[in-house]
Design a protein around this nucleic acid. Structure first.
Lengths: 316, 316
DNA sequence: TATCCTTACGGAATTCGTAAGCATG
DNA sequence: CATGCTTACGAATTCCGTAAGGATA
């Protein structure tokens, strides 16, 4: 058993059982990959992949049993290397953070500024993506830390740690009728609505609130980020619903806009930090998390990483 | 990085940094081991071992950081192999159980009998040893399951699961004065005492009970097992204190002896099953545990194995 | 017929053990 | 001076990529 064999197996699963792709991804020849897999299967005495003729199509039952350990081994190997990098590289290194637009635009800047001040030798990479893309970036190792409004923890390979709670706000141009008197879901639904794309930044909780109230507002525009929403609210296209944090900061760009607190209308949302389960990150990665959410100390995050996936049940 | 390098490192630590011994244990040459270690250090860019001249004497700080991952990797590799053995070997295989004398003699026979009936193709190995030896056997992989009166969980590499509680009994020859009236620690201390060796089968709780009562009984003989104790009680050498289970069974061998319940005199003891943390056992190993202690289902044991070592705090 | 995996083969790189060298207690 | 690690070297093995073969959609 060797790591190249394990990498071949993992990559084969990730790339949909296409060994030609796997070879490209691992910078080796296709027959090489074929051999690695065959040799591991021979050594273990089981077929990991289902073969239809000469084509791989899926995992066999032994393959399903073996795969989690393959991934664990490769993950641990990376952790071992990271553990030693802590000594070879000292305080220098690369930290890769993946976040949704909202987080990158409004929540992260403070943490990034503080972190760069305290860790000038760490090269900070910021990747933006949808929650699904962020999960993928974490699992494939492209990113070390993921930040998004919950959801992320879907994959058993990830751990999500709640950071802070936030609510939505309503945005309207100055002089808008909604600014007079208390805002209700019913009143909002009278106007065209501009908000986030499905699955982004609490869009689910917005939809849920309207649905529970039996309302069906006209969504005239959905966007991936608050700036786009604000731009079109500014053009009188409709009423904006966005994360209140997106209004707290940034008053210059759209001076004509007014925010209305809407925490009583929509469910509270939670922003979470996600990391790979079972892995080890560089020391400064844990420090970044703590900079972002002070209660998430390195020890807390490490403990969460090492906790098993199935012990999700809350204590009594 | 390859597994032979990792094995060399692990073995070097286990064998007190003597590479000659390591070479013998791994069935290879000493320069080979030296090279494996050197190459891993080169690849990681850190020195794992402290070298005094040409001799290895201990772990460097990077070595301390890296070692847990080395052990985890090797453990996971074994788990991967076991996962596939489940398919290659079906219901056959070898199950190695390590237990103290008391457990092997009195608690295990039922479980062994039932297990052999349900798993006729599993070769059952029973190793006897002190709690420390049992821990070692588990950690080195000689045994898969350890059974002893608590203590075992000292090592972070092991998980102990409580099975059942038991108490001590007093053994005296028929007609002994202690058989008349209630037994107290004071009355026992009037006689010479025969009991277990230090550290074995609840000896600690016996000592503790006498110490708390301010008594200092004369221990005239200590033994590793109940049979020896009974033999010498039968010879009128003194009063025996042993696990009550050792008297419940087996009435033939010493028909002259009488047992007196002593659960009110000494603290309750707990027998635990211990397994390697983070590892995977063959399916029948989990079934054996369940046969021994029906509440320890395979899922319960697996969950305990995967739980992190530092989350020992009880839920609120 | 295009895609994709397996087999075959030969050169290159790695691996490993023996023998010699050297430092330490 | 006995023990124990490192270096040196040569043989054997393993590894890997190219090229050809065969099966499937």
């Amino acid at each position: 058993m060797n790591f190249q064999q394990l990498r071949s197996v993992r990559e084969a699963v990730r790339r949909g059982f296409n060994l030609t792709e796997v070879a490209a991804a691992l910078h080796t020849s296709q027959p090489g990959v074929s051999r690695q897999i065959r040799e591991l299967e021979d050594e273990l005495g089981v077929e990991i992949f289902v073969r239809v003729g000469k084509r791989l199509t899926g995992l066999t039952p032994p393959g399903v049993a073996v795969l989690p350990w393959v991934e664990k081994l490769l993950l641990d190997a990376e952790s071992l290397q990271r553990a030693s990098e802590e000594f070879t590289q000292g305080s220098t290194g690369v930290l890769s953070v993946a976040a949704t637009h909202s987080q990158a635009r409004y929540a992260l800047p403070h943490a990034v500024r503080d972190f760069r001040a305290t860790h000038p030798h760490v090269q900070l990479q910021l990747h933006q993506g949808s929650p699904e893309q962020i999960s993928q970036m974490l699992l494939t190792g492209v990113a070390d830390i993921g930040i998004a409004s919950h959801v992320l923890a879907e994959s058993p390979g990830l751990v999500a740690l709640p950071c802070y709670r936030w609510t939505h706000a309503i945005v309207v141009p100055e002089g808008h009728a909604l600014l007079d008197g208390p805002v209700t879901l019913e009143r909002i639904a009278d106007y065209p609505v501009i908000t986030y794309d499905t699955g982004l930044t609490g869009r689910n909780s917005i939809d849920g609130a309207f649905a529970r109230a039996g309302l069906n507002p006209e969504i005239v525009l959905t966007a991936m980020d608050a700036d786009v929403i604000k731009t079109y609210v500014d053009l009188d296209l409709g009423v904006g619903i966005l994360a209140s944090i997106a209004m707290d900061e940034d008053h210059q760009s759209h001076p004509r806009l007014r925010a209305i607190d809407a925490r009583h209308l929509f469910p509270i949302n939670t922003t979470s930090v996600a990391v790979r389960r079972g892995g080890l990150l560089r020391g400064f990665a844990y420090e970044f998390v703590q900079t972002f959410a002070s209660h998430l100390t390195p020890d807390v995050v490490k403990a969460a990483q090492q906790a098993p996936a199935d012990t999700q049940q809350a204590p009594l």
